[in-house]
Design a protein around this nucleic acid. Structure first.
Lengths: 345, 345
DNA sequence: CTGTTAGCGCCTTCAG
DNA sequence: CTGAAGGCGCTAACAG
């Protein structure tokens, strides 16, 4: 790694055998006391722990990982870690991990397939205890790596495709269908689709949108507006602007992210377009602000926290069982109707 | 399993010496080829790299970390990782790290001092290459640990207190002063302070607010409203509600986070309070949405991305130098005036 | 329940 | 510029 200072002075750090010597036992006993206390007699355990404490012993994770082929790290790989919607997932992950002695390592691939492979390799090089992968349809190289990984792997967010191993999330296509159908049922006809990057989930929502629009005889490709950017509130305004340029009679928008929806709301306000009578807006994710914005924004609630929490749980269970039986958990979603689509008549 | 086998669970993993054997060199040469290519002759380098590639060799980070006392990991410890404002910092960190072979490990302490110590211990146990610590005034135990850490440590966000090692951020007290002064100069008098948890930075801003309000003869403790919650848009509405209950003639609010400011704006809209003529609102952080909201919200711009980027850079430089000379970088901030405080007269 | 033995895979040191 | 030797700190696999 980087230019490191040499520090071969072994007495800087308290090691397992230092503790063992002081306690008058073998190092393996100290090791066991720390990792499998049940397998050590109570009195020995007590003495050992006393020495561990008084000597300020801190285990060396690298040594542990090397000897046991298990780093104690759960790697989380996401194409858009800095997306606000992931925060909920992170919270769930963290909360589930807190009571264990595992650690989380996050990696952000920014939708770069090469980086995805690189980062995954880096994790694999660490003998991870588990991997959470927030992308489902990725390149085959990644799929292969995930399949042969020697640890439980959970793919999160989307369950519309059979995963290499375990998966938990929702079906974004069905969600897209439901949102679109809701807008149609609310009386809107020229319904635009505002999106950012076409990642796997966005494409699934697009499929849902397209299916329903075609079924209703309302499909028009000009209604689909997307820019290859990270979603943001300002982007929502730009997208609506472009939609109205392209399709002046557009009367609603299904947004791929609540950030876009909020931006669209602001843009409508600037233009004096009334929501919901003149224009309907449906968001996605049900971020906390859509419930309190003026007007409140209809959105699709995704169980983000639960996805994170249970993903870790699935890894833990697989470790307990000693085997990773493939499984797929569809957590479902909820359409939350609010003022932004509550058209009169 | 077979007779006379002494091999342990020798995984199918390709090791350094496998590559060395195949290439007809010693393992240390392969090791050097990978880490310090300059120190290996070009032709040897080429052959070695060919074998590395064809055999699919992936270094074992645990072994590397154990042998070199350097894990190649930069640990990022934050009390509120899932705060939206940190995303910018994360982006900066990631961008600076991408071109190196270092990895980032994030830890979230949720403002729990005990967890802060625990997580820091966990990092220290990994021989981190560097540590980024997003909290300045912490308990003495943490300060001590940071001081004796055998790697560069950068404390980020706040520079109002002398750090254990290096620090980069802004002076939140001065920022609080400037925001408050701006509101006063805009003609507001009963200026509330809306906040969440009183972390170090929030307290600094409070100090700035208090100083300026007292100086102007406008200070009134009833104007300070805070709830010990994570900031959010809905919370902003609640806080404004409470402010108006306690101080019905309040005519402005300085919010500790743009999320709160946005929530306050929505609350005003619901109540039919006009911004900025009846009520002025100033946020903090300059999140992207404040520029496009209706009305646009005045805010204090913090160089979040740069803080993250340069924090990593400082670690890298310290490693290059081989020594961590204490340093403190104040990046400054900017008050961005917008409609929410543009009072006529 | 406790200990012995033998590495895990790599890098540091020190020679050549 | 290259290599041989040894060990980093811990734990798996057997014993007893």
């Amino acid at each position: 790694m980087s230019a490191g200072k040499r520090q071969r002075n072994r007495h800087q750090r308290v090691t397992l055998s230092d503790v063992a010597q002081a306690a008058g036992v073998s190092s393996i006993t100290v090791s066991r006391t720390l990792r499998e206390p049940d397998k050590v007699s109570p009195d020995l355990r007590e003495t050992v722990l006393k020495f561990v404490d008084s000597m300020g012993y801190i285990p060396d994770f690298a040594a542990r990982a090397l000897a046991s082929s298990d780093s104690g790290i759960i790697g989380v790989i996401s194409p858009a870690l800095t997306n606000h919607a992931y925060l909920g997932v992170m919270r769930g992950i963290e909360d589930r991990v807190r009571s264990t002695d595992l650690r989380i390592q996050y990696a952000n691939t920014t939708y770069d397939p090469a980086d995805e492979v690189r980062q995954l390799k880096q994790f694999l090089a660490q003998n991870p205890t588990g991997i959470i992968f927030a992308n489902v349809d990725t390149n085959p190289a990644v799929e292969d790596m995930l399949r042969v990984a020697r640890c439980p792997v959970v793919q999160i967010m989307d369950v519309s495709k059979a995963p290499a191993n375990m998966a938990i999330g929702i079906d974004h296509k069905v969600a897209g269908e439901m949102a679109t159908r809701h807008l149609i049922e609310s009386g809107y006809r020229r319904i635009g689709l505002l999106g950012g990057r076409w990642d796997a989930r966005a494409r699934r929502r697009l499929e849902g949108y397209t299916a329903v629009m075609k079924e209703a005889g309302l499909y028009d490709p000009a209604l689909i507006i997307a820019l290859d950017h990270m979603t943001s509130v300002p982007l929502g305004g730009h997208l609506l602007d472009r939609l109205l340029q392209t399709v002046p009679d557009a009367d609603a928008a299904f947004c791929h992210h609540d950030e876009l929806a909020l931006g669209a709301v602001f843009e409508c306000q600037r233009r004096g377009i009334d929501i919901p009578s003149q224009f309907g807006i449906c968001g996605y994710n049900d971020m906390d602000y859509v419930a309190v914005s003026v007007p409140a924004i209809t959105s699709v609630r995704i169980p983000r926290y639960e996805i994170g929490f249970r993903a870790v749980d699935m890894i833990l269970r697989a470790l307990d069982r000693g085997s990773a039986s493939p499984s797929l958990v569809d957590l479902g979603f909820t359409l939350v109707r609010r003022a932004s689509t509550a058209r009169q008549g």
